[in-house]
Computed example of a mutant assay.
Amino acid sequence: MTSPPPPPAWLLLEGGGSHTWAATATGDTVLTTAEGPSTSPRSVGEERAVHTLVDLIGQVWDNPTTAPLGVVAAHGAASTRAAAGDFAALIRRALALVGPMAGPVLVTNDLTPLLLSAPGPVCVAACGTGTGFAARNGARWARSSGLEWLLSDEGGGHDLAVAGLRAVVRALDGRGPGTVLTGLAQAWCAESDCTGGDLGEHLFFHVYREEGAKPLVATFAQHVLEAAEDGDAVAGRLVENAADELAAGAAAVCRATGITTGTDYTLLLSGSLLTEATFLRGHFMTWAHENLPPTALLWHTPKSRPEDLLRLRDLWLTPQALPPLTAAMPIHSDPVPSMAEGART
């Protein structure tokens, strides 16, 4: 007796500069999940991004002869509308290599589902490897930062890590003050197989040894936060500067959408440097309470991913709901002509 075919399912993807989460879902039920490294092509390159997507899809998709109903992806790689389209093309490549499979694809920035997760006015501040800020107040939407590390992302993990590593090199050169970051940097790059030479040579080898080192470099941010909490003056100034950048991003999107002092709004924090109780979050929240006190404070956690992405899927299947979203945020959307209401189940 043959087994019945598996029910039609959706493929869900969420990711940014350091991680990728994949899942399958039928209706509102998540069936399987998997996690892996970054699939952002500007962090790891296109080929590595596709390779990781193939691996993750293969882990969650049991029957590669059956195509997904659709792919819903909220990803930091969707910095612009064109970039969202490019990432959709990478997803199609990965599907073809797994199955071969094909299906309609929706790609938008990872801030989009967060803006939809709270009623009323909302401001999202995201700080992980990079940064992103967005706000929604009625029909007014705004977004700032999120154009990757060469154009933006000030205050994020990669930016803070680079500032910390530069402080170490300045101290080694005599161009800057001494800092406990020097010892932390020595331990941080000790795992590399560079032999001989001084700390400067070891750091050089560690950060330049391979293409796509951005996620690796960003891990040094935790050492900067640790040094700041322990009272190191150099690290403390770097964290204060990062908090100022986060405040500037949040203030910009609130100003653009009319969220001011006295507005009943929700502040939603996302990204490990803000959702975890770090020294950076403390500085940022001090600014928020003094300048734009929120009515409610929420944290975006991994548990929120399925609900957020399924809410985004439902909007995709509601023709009148998607155009305003498309006008406000970077998004690539294939048509879903044959799915309508039945595809939710």
Rank of each mutant, 00 (worst) to 15 (best):
P4V: 01
H19G: 13
A22N: 03
A25D: 02
T26C: 14
G27P: 02
L31E: 15
T33Q: 13
T33F: 02
A34C: 07
A34L: 07
S40V: 07
P41L: 09
R42E: 09
V44N: 07
V44G: 07
G45A: 10
E47I: 07
V50H: 04
L53V: 03
V54E: 11
D55R: 14
V71Y: 11
G76N: 09
A78G: 04
A78E: 01
S79P: 02
T80N: 04
R81Y: 00
A82C: 00
A82P: 00
F87W: 07
I91T: 03
R92V: 08
A94W: 05
D110C: 02
L115N: 01
V122S: 06
C123M: 15
V124S: 02
V124M: 04
A126W: 05
G128S: 11
T131K: 05
G132P: 03
W141E: 07
S145G: 11
W149T: 12
D159N: 15
D159T: 10
V169K: 02
G176S: 03
G176L: 02
V180W: 00
T182H: 00
W188A: 07
S192E: 11
L199F: 05
L203Q: 09
V207F: 09
E210H: 13
P215V: 11
A218M: 11
H223R: 15
D232I: 04
G236C: 02
R237M: 04
L246S: 05
A251W: 05
A251G: 08
V253M: 07
C254Q: 12
R255D: 14
A256S: 14
A256T: 08
A256V: 09
T263H: 06
D264C: 09
D264R: 14
L267C: 04
L267R: 00
L268T: 09
G271Y: 10
T275H: 05
T278A: 06
H283S: 03
W287V: 06
L298V: 12
H300K: 13
D308C: 13
R313F: 10
D314F: 03
L315R: 15
Q320Y: 07
L325I: 12
L325S: 06
A327G: 15
A327P: 05
A340L: 15
T345C: 13
